[in-house]
Amino acid sequence: MKKIAREIAELVHSTSSSLPSDAERAIRSALRREARGSSACMVLETILKNVALARAAGTPLCQDTGTLTFFVDASLRRKAPQSAFDEAVAYASSQGWLRRNTIDPITGASIDSNVCPGAPVVHYVGSDAKEGHGTIRLIMKGGGSENMSVQFSLPDASLGAARDMEGVRKCVLAAVQRAQGFGCAPGLLGVCVGGDRASGFEEAKMQLLRDIGDANPVPALAKLERRILKEANSLGIGPMGLGGKTTLLGVKIGTRPRLPASYFVTVAYMCWAARRGVLVV
């Protein structure tokens, strides 16, 4: 195996087994807010115990090792082609770092290596880095949370949501309300305002790459992020939907230009097992 494929395989391993420290910190501070002895408390304590166990043993944090989406600086296109990612993922699968998690939609057969046309997903994105240098980012998103991702088209009469930031806020809260009990709360939201149906989901997912503690550089979005986080946590849904003060760990909002006729609000729901990793080449 080439050096780059080996490094990508290691990235997959560490991402699968080690929760990013910002997510762990956010869960720890959530635990301090919940009432002692409550089911919310029990859930968060179990999550933290799980995080420590998986990290120490190098085993998957969650049995659903998810869809692997790589965002790769375009300057690495030659050094890290799709074939390097395929090789890395096949190896990671053989080592038990990934579940046999890829299904042929027609036959229902399992593709045990998790490698086939379309998997893993590799996006090459624009970058100023020098040829042969750059960053590889990985998101591993499980099916339970992906099933809760949703796209709204504004205006939406049922929510009373118009084509403005207030409409966006209503959509995002509706997505949280809808995900309760299913998305493995406390979760993280990546949101895209605008774009077409495909780029909306792409941008929403890319927002999940941001550090939970960062602030949006766009003041209007920073304000909206803070407000939605506060309001969502006032819904009382709580960890795993059993009630409590922590429903979300963070909200990250980005934008894409839209057509005059379209106004999409896309919400990528990420579970507490917000697995993401970075490899600098």
Partner: peptide, 13 residues
């Protein structure tokens, strides 16, 4: 009973 979703390592243990 609700088990803790995603807590795969704890459950495995």
């Amino acid at each position: 009973l609700q088990a803790v979703g995603g807590a795969a390592a704890v459950t495995a243990r």
